[in-house]
Simulated scan of single mutants.
Amino acid sequence: MAVFRRSLMVTSLALFALSARADNVQSTPVVAPDSPQASSAKPEKATEAPRENRLFPVKDDVIGSMQSMTTRYEDTFADIGTRTSIGYLELVHANPGIDPWLPGDGTRITLPQQHVLPDSPREGIVVNLAEFRLYYYKDGGVKTYPVGVGSEQNPSPLTKSKVTMRLESPAWYPPKSVREEYEASGTPLPRVIPPGPENPLGNYALKLSAEGYLIHGTNKKFGIGMQVSHGCIRMYNNDIKELVFDVPKGTPVAFVDQPVKVGLNGNEVWLEVHRPKEDLDAQTKDRLWKAVMARMDTLMESNPGLEFQRAAVENAIDQADGIPRLVGERTRQVAKASVESGRKERVSH
C-alpha cells in the first residue's frame, strides 16, 4: 500500500492534464480523447438503450460504454432495468437524486453499461457478489448480466462450482431452513412448488455442483441487482432464458466478492468501486480505501510506470457508484518502450 500512496503524492502535479479531465467526474466516467471508447463514451440520445448482454470481445480489462435514455411517464427503475438488463441498485447509484419509482416523463438518466472485469480467471461463469453481476466468458469474449444475490442473513457462497444440469420449468423444493422461516412468519410452504406463476425459480434454471444452489429466473418483478435471495443467484427471466441454452454442462462457476475493481484499457487505468447499500458510511468507505490501495499496489507491481491522479481516485471512492473512472495512465516513455518491444518480438518471430 505504501507504493501506491507514494505514487499518488508524486503524481499529483505530473498528471495535470489527467486531473483536468478527472476532476470533472461526478456520475459519468471520463474517457481519454485517444481512448478506444471515446467514440462511444457520449450517452445515447435515443429514448431507449440496447440491452447490455451482448458478447463483448475481451481485449483489455474494460468492456462496454456508458449510455443514457429519456424516461417515459410510466417508467420506474425496475421497468428500465428489465428492458436494458441493468440491476436496480446499479441504476439508483448511477442516478443520485432521481426518484427510482417516479423518475418522471422526459428525465434523462444514466445507464451504467460499462464495466471493469473482475480479477478472476476468465473462464466459464464468474459471479461478483459485490456488484450483483454475472460474467460469462465464451469464444474469446464475455457476456454480462445483473443478478440478485443472497441476503445478509442467507449469503451466497464464496466458492468454486460448476454447472451440472439445465432445468426447464423447474419445480422448487424449499429446504427445511426456508420452510421453517416461512412457517415462523405465518405463511407455511409446501414441500414442493410445481412449475407455474407461484414458483420463485421462474421458467429456467442452472443447477450447480454446490449443493442447494441454482442460477435461476424469478416470478417477481423486483430484486435483480439486490441482496434478496436465500443464497441462489436470481436473474431477469429474459436473461436466464438466453443463458441457460448457452452454457454447457460442466462449465466452471466462481463466486467472488470484489467491491473494488481496477483494470487497464490500453495505457489507461480504470477504477470501479461499489458500495453494498444505498448509503455509504464511514466504516465502509475506509474499507473501500484499503481495498483500492491493495489493488493498485498489485497492479503497479506487474505494470511499471503507472501514474495516478489522487483527485480521481478519491472521487471514485467518495461516489462508490459502480461507474468506472479513469484514474491514471502509463507514462509515455514506458508505453513507447512497450510498443517498441512488441515490434521487435514480432520481427524476431
Rank of each mutant, 00 (worst) to 15 (best):
E52F: 15
L55V: 03
F56L: 00
P57G: 02
P57S: 02
P57I: 01
V58L: 02
K59P: 01
K59W: 00
D61G: 04
V62K: 02
I63W: 01
G64I: 05
G64Y: 04
Q67P: 01
S68E: 12
S68Q: 08
M69Y: 10
T70D: 08
T71Y: 13
E74W: 14
E74H: 12
D75C: 09
T76V: 14
T76C: 15
T76R: 15
F77E: 14
A78P: 04
G81Q: 13
G81P: 12
R83F: 08
R83H: 11
S85A: 15
Y88M: 11
L89P: 01
E90V: 11
L91K: 06
L91S: 04
V92C: 14
H93E: 14
D99H: 07
P100W: 03
P100L: 08
W101A: 13
L102K: 09
L102S: 08
L102Y: 12
L102G: 05
D105S: 15
T107H: 00
I109R: 06
I109C: 09
I109N: 15
T110P: 03
T110V: 15
T110Y: 03
Q113R: 04
V116E: 08
L117P: 01
P118Y: 13
P118M: 13
D119T: 15
D119M: 15
S120F: 08
I125T: 06
I125W: 01
V126W: 05
A130M: 09
A130T: 10
L134I: 10
L134V: 09
Y135T: 08
Y135L: 11
Y135Q: 13
Y135H: 15
Y136A: 12
Y136H: 13
Y136M: 09
Y136I: 11
Y137C: 05
Y137E: 04
Y137H: 07
K138R: 07
K138G: 03
D139V: 06
G141A: 04
V142Y: 03
V142E: 10
V142S: 01
V142H: 03
K143V: 03
T144C: 11
Y145S: 05
V147F: 10
V147H: 09
G148T: 07
G150W: 04
E152P: 00
N154Q: 13
P155T: 07
P155M: 11
P155R: 07
S156A: 03
P157Q: 06
P157E: 03
L158G: 02
T159K: 13
K160M: 12
K160W: 11
S161N: 08
V163C: 02
T164S: 13
T164W: 09
L167D: 09
E168N: 12
S169K: 09
P170Q: 07
A171F: 14
A171P: 10
A171M: 15
W172D: 06
W172G: 07
Y173C: 02
P175T: 04
V178W: 00
V178Y: 00
R179W: 01
R179N: 01
R179A: 02
E181R: 04
Y182M: 07
Y182K: 08
E183S: 14
E183P: 03
E183C: 06
S185P: 09
S185N: 14
S185R: 11
S185G: 14
G186T: 03
G186F: 02
G186V: 05
P188C: 02
L189R: 01
P190Y: 02
V192W: 07
V192R: 13
I193T: 07
G196C: 08
P197M: 12
E198K: 14
N199H: 12
